[in-house]
Amino acid sequence: MQRRWRLATVVAACGVVLALVKISADAPVSAAIWLAVFLIFALVSSPLLFPRHERAAAAVADGRPVVYWRPGCPFCVRLRARLGPDAARLHWVDIWQDPEGAATVRSITGGDETVPTVVLAGRGYVNPDPSWLRDQLQPTS
């Protein structure tokens, strides 16, 4: 659990330190701006932007597409943000919490843990374009 929050905590702590330095230099407005910027980056790099973690076994059994991700991954954040409300139609598996999910990613990517990795209809896609994935999620009529 600590590993998931490490990057967000470091970013937030850097923001606090920078704000304290700016306050000591009599620049409270600058301190507030920098603190806000760092806290936004901390939020983006935290696991809070993603739906609740699911286990890989349960996610695969459902039949919906599965996104394997990890906190702090800018490509995962981009995918999540660009999918918007469609992201709720996917299962999100945090590979740092699920060793089975990490093993699945390694088998798809040839041994590394490159994320986001999406499994759609039994086929794996590494870092797919968000608009392509959104098109794949649309019902065919």
Rank of each mutant, 00 (worst) to 15 (best):
A13G: 14
N127F: 06
D94E: 07
R106L: 01
E100F: 02
V10I: 15
L20D: 10
H53Y: 09
V118L: 00
L48I: 13
M1F: 06
V37M: 10
V44F: 14
P65H: 08
A56Q: 05
T114C: 03
V126T: 13
S107W: 08
D26N: 12
W5Y: 14
T9W: 11
V44I: 15
V60M: 15
I95A: 10
L43Q: 08
L137K: 11
G72Q: 05
G72Y: 02
E100K: 14
V66Q: 05
K22V: 00
Y68F: 15
A13V: 11
V126S: 02
V29C: 07
I23L: 15
R4S: 15
P28S: 12
F50S: 05
G84S: 10
A103Y: 07
D129L: 01
A59C: 05
S107V: 01
N127S: 14
R89I: 00
V77F: 02
D62H: 13
S24N: 11
E100C: 02
L137N: 09
S24A: 15
S141I: 14
L133K: 03
E113M: 08
V10E: 02
A27T: 12
A27P: 04
G72H: 02
P139H: 08
D129S: 09
H53A: 14
R82S: 13
A87D: 08
V118E: 01
G63H: 12
P47F: 05
G124C: 06
Q138P: 03
W69S: 05
V93R: 05
P65R: 06
R89T: 10
